[in-house]
């Protein structure tokens, strides 16, 4: 799972592109979308969320849910731009690697 860490920011931005969410929901959604392949320690997501917020890619606020206060994160316009750039870079990179390594036969 260590190779995943370099891409965690992009994955978190992609999860939050659909809807605002709190940390617990982000890690659950990452696990669900990857069919369990991205099974990181749940705490890993919080430094990434704080880093992305400091960089201006996310905003956050406390919201009440079922009698409990939760910090909910949402993508900013800048974050959406970063996600689009990240998607393009990832597609180009993945395509190039696939070309060199070759498709599974």
């Amino acid at each position: 799972m260590s190779e995943l860490r370099g891409h965690l920011d992009l994955l978190v931005l992609a999860v939050l592109a659909d809807a605002p969410a709190h940390g617990y929901a982000v890690i659950e959604e990452l696990r669900r979308r990857s069919a369990g392949a991205f099974d990181l320690p749940e705490g890993t997501v919080y430094p990434a969320l704080h880093r992305l917020e400091t960089s201006g890619f996310l905003t956050s606020s406390w919201e009440a849910h079922g009698g409990r206060r939760r910090r909910v994160y949402r993508l900013t316009r800048r974050g959406r731009g970063r996600l689009e750039r990240g998607r393009s870079e990832w597609s180009a990179f993945a395509g190039a690697v696939t070309t060199v390594v070759g498709e599974a036969r």
């Binding site: 705490g43 919080y46 704080h50 409990r68």
Partner: peptide, 17 residues
């Protein structure tokens, strides 16, 4: 301030879990 926020977020996550 950051410390308080981190601890609150982590505690909320763990309690939900």
């Amino acid at each position: 301030f950051r410390r308080r926020r981190i601890l609150a977020e982590v505690e909320d996550h763990l309690r939900a879990s």
